[in-house]
Design a protein around this nucleic acid. Structure first.
Ligand SMILES: [Zn+2]
Ligand SMILES: [Zn+2]
Length: 377
DNA sequence: ATACTCGGACAATCAAATCA
DNA sequence: GATTTGATTGTCCGAGTATA
């Protein structure tokens, strides 16, 4: 859905990848549909390892873009990620797959592939902010709307849609017009559908060590309920709330590590998964720790049981600071507690549509800001 | 300075098409 | 049946704007 309907939390910060906590968007009353701006889709994907595909489909061709997340230090004004003074010496915006920009040495770096959660929570979705696999996600926790943190629903992909002939695998296209020869053998290693990182062929050929997400523990690490739960998926391991991963100094890059200085110790290097409320890292508490009313000191994992077994999410009182976030802005539509005002619709360029232009309005009070207030169009 | 909005790039998924 | 293609759908980056 477009963000618009619900409000998104202030993301001011939210956006930052990884550590940053994104601000959750509380959707108040939101219906969550899954889509944000774009309408959306279903599914739960598997984590594919990164492969190197050279760009393939026209649509998805990755041209790398200019912006390099890693390098940019998080400092946009709104970027909360920029943690308070306590922030670590390295940029918060660390992409799971490593940076892309130029290395200090001046060598072009490969842009790190952006990691996406399989299913963002409704709040983050609406706010178009980064979510995580935990539930409540960091952003929601940060904004005190953990109770509203639920997976968004994805719609099912359409079936039966005919597609034109594919280009021949041997490199010859079935289409007269696409004469372009396959790049480097053009063949994408089987099993590596799309994981290409828009690299030049040459670069793509170079096996880049897969960094499972520096900032986050491996996907499997989060033991939350299967977002996309597929029948065959094994139950996730115990969950460690990411928020608990305090930033730590990066270890010196391995001499042979092309990735450069990015690298956190793997999750297991971090302290135990126990995040009593009030123990949040400063950056998590953008607005101060949510008043905890219950479950103090409860092991984090408790909240992250497999879905089926999980008890209802704990309720967090909305932090006082958040109140102001409520959209009072006249311009905004906003928000009825239930919700949405606009209609979903936008389509992004590539097809993805931002959800509703009208925006979600949603939230009752606070939410607007917390959740993306509007859908992108 | 911080919070919020939102366009659009990028990522992931998966059914159709093709190959073996 | 296995593999690949490529459209669809979802995530969220990051710049721009608004507000405090
Ligand atoms: Zn979230
Ligand atoms: Zn959430």
């Amino acid at each position: 859905m477009p963000d618009s309907q619900n409000q998104s939390p202030p993301d001011g910060e939210d956006d930052r990848p990884d550590h940053s906590l994104d601000s959750p968007t509380p959707t108040v009353g939101t219906t969550t549909d899954a889509s944000e701006h774009h309408p959306t889709s279903p599914a739960a994907p598997l984590i594919t390892t990164p492969a190197t595909t050279t760009t393939t489909t026209p649509a998805t061709t990755t041209t790398s873009s200019s912006t390099n997340p890693n390098t940019t230090s998080p400092s946009s004004p709104d970027n909360p990620d920029t943690l308070p003074s306590t922030s670590p010496p390295f940029p918060m915006r660390v992409y799971p797959f490593g940076p892309t920009a130029a290395t200090p040495s001046g060598q072009p770096q490969i842009r790190a592939k952006r990691r996406q959660v399989k299913n963002a929570c409704t709040n983050c979705q609406k706010a178009c902010k980064k979510c995580d696999d935990a539930r409540p996600c960091l952003r929601c926790v940060k904004y005190g709307i953990g109770e509203e943190c639920v997976d968004s629903q994805r719609k099912e992909r359409r079936k039966g849609v005919k597609r034109g002939p594919y280009k021949k695998r041997d490199g010859k296209s079935s289409h007269p017009d696409d004469a372009s020869p396959p790049l480097d053998g053009a063949a994408v290693p089987a099993g590596a559908p799309h994981s290409g990182i828009g690299l030049p062929p040459a670069a793509a050929a170079v096996p880049v060590p897969y960094m499972p997400h520096v900032g986050y523990p491996p996907a499997a690490f989060y033991g939350q309920y299967p977002p996309s739960s597929k029948p065959g998926d094994p139950p996730p391991p115990a969950y460690y709330h990411p928020s608990y991963y305090m930033p730590m100094p990066l270890p010196p890059p391995a001499a042979d590590d092309p990735q450069g200085p990015i690298g956190y110790p793997m999750p297991h290097f971090y302290p135990p998964p126990y995040v009593p409320y009030g123990s949040y890292a400063p950056y998590m508490m953008h607005h101060g720790p949510p008043p905890r009313t219950e479950g103090v000191g409860a092991p984090v994992g408790a909240h992250y049981m497999p879905y089926s077994a999980a008890p209802p999410p704990p309720s967090y009182a909305r932090p006082p600071m958040l109140q102001p976030l409520v959209h009072q802005n006249p311009g905004h539509q906003s928000v009825t507690p239930t919700g949405v005002v606009g209609s979903p619709s936008g389509v992004s360029v590539n097809g993805a549509a931002h959800m509703n232009p009208g925006g979600e309005a949603g939230a009752g009070s606070s939410a607007s800001a917390l959740v993306g207030a509007e859908g992108h169009v």
